[in-house]
């Protein structure tokens, strides 16, 4: 299963990279730098997907108290933070040439940053309670509260920004069909990558649990 996914991922990556760099046309106003868009959107998507999986895993763990759900939530949180970090970095790299600034307190940027802080805190709680049952429960609670919070954060940040003057208006430039296709393909590839990483992290967590229980048996 994992090997199959791996092969599919590799193929999809090769096609995506070809599409992004060789096939997709260069954007008129922004030039080559616009290509980062295919990575930026895809990482943002994976970030949200990962946090949604954390939410599902957290609820599953609180309901069933099975380590399996906890492993899913924990593995997904790490990947989510990684991809949100990449999303913030690629966004910043794109903003400088496109808007002339590295960062702006735009609603979407701000909410992503708040989200990033939330799930980094999740990982810290996890780290502080390494491996214990307690840590699993605490992070599950955070996983639920954090996800429920996301819509309110989005809404409040949007209102907060619209009251002030808008520094930068994100131009909705039309995408050509080929660009749209490349974007969708890139999102698809990143989603595959997410699941591949999730399975890998899950297996590592499972092995860790097994080692701990074996060590305990040895001690007895």
């Amino acid at each position: 299963m994992k090997i199959l996914l791996g092969i599919l991922l590799l193929l999809s990556m090769l096609v995506s990279i070809t599409m992004v760099f060789l096939v997709a046309p260069i954007e008129e106003t922004m030039g080559v730098v616009q290509k980062i868009f295919y990575f930026h959107v895809a990482t943002a998507w994976v970030g949200f997907l990962a946090f949604f999986v954390v939410f599902i895993g957290s609820i599953g763990y609180l309901a069933k108290k099975s380590r399996r759900w906890d492993r899913i939530a924990y593995s997904s949180a790490g990947i989510g933070v990684l991809f949100t970090t990449l999303c913030l970095i690629t966004g910043s790299l794109w903003a400088k040439p496109a808007w002339g600034i590295w960062w702006t307190w735009d609603a979407r940027l701000t909410s992503t940053l708040v989200l990033w802080f939330m799930y980094v805190a999740y990982l810290i709680v996890r780290y502080e309670t390494e491996g214990s049952e307690r840590g699993a429960v605490f992070s599950a609670v955070l996983g639920v509260i954090g996800f429920v919070d996301i819509p309110i954060v989005f809404m409040s940040v949007r209102w907060w920004r619209t009251v002030h003057c808008d520094l930068v208006i994100v131009e909705r430039t039309g995408l050509t069909p080929i660009m749209l296709f490349t974007l969708l393909l890139s999102v698809f590839t990143f989603t595959l990558l997410y699941f591949y990483l999730l399975i890998t992290k899950y297996e590592i967590a499972k092995t860790k649990d097994e080692i701990t229980s074996l060590k305990e048996k040895l001690r007895e």
Partner: peptide
């Protein structure tokens, strides 16, 4: 609920603002 969590970890006092502030951003803004 978050202070119940933070006081049960090793970091204790420093952990609470880290987990609490991002979540209550909407409260602060509003």
């Amino acid at each position: 609920i978050l202070s119940a969590i933070s006081t049960s970890t090793k970091k204790r006092d420093i952990l609470l603002p880290l987990i609490l502030f991002p979540i209550i951003t909407p409260v602060l803004i509003g």
